[in-house]
Amino acid sequence: MSSYTVLVAFFAVALASVIFWFVAPKENRTVWRSTVILSMAMMFLMWAFTYLAQLHPLVAPRRSDLRPEFAE
């Protein structure tokens, strides 16, 4: 688990986008291409930023309301 995961996912999304560019339905092709590829890109970005933000955390969760029974 490292920042390479993000790169791998990026290439996967890029590949999927390229494939979709060619297999998009003939009717309303522009709308299909733009909508699907843009959605994939935005969803990837959002996931990637969330993942990266937790990759090397600078703060750790802290709480004092946990009951001792909760310990594994």
Binding site: Y51, Q54, R63, S64
Partner: peptide, 28 residues
């Protein structure tokens, strides 16, 4: 830990997708 003691979690990995649920309800 003792009841009421402030405890801090230790990082053991990265949550795969989305925000880690360990953050839910924590003080920070």
């Amino acid at each position: 830990w003792e009841e009421g003691e402030a405890i801090e979690a230790k990082a053991i990995g990265t949550y795969v997708m989305g925000l880690d649920w360990a953050w839910h309800g924590t003080e920070n």
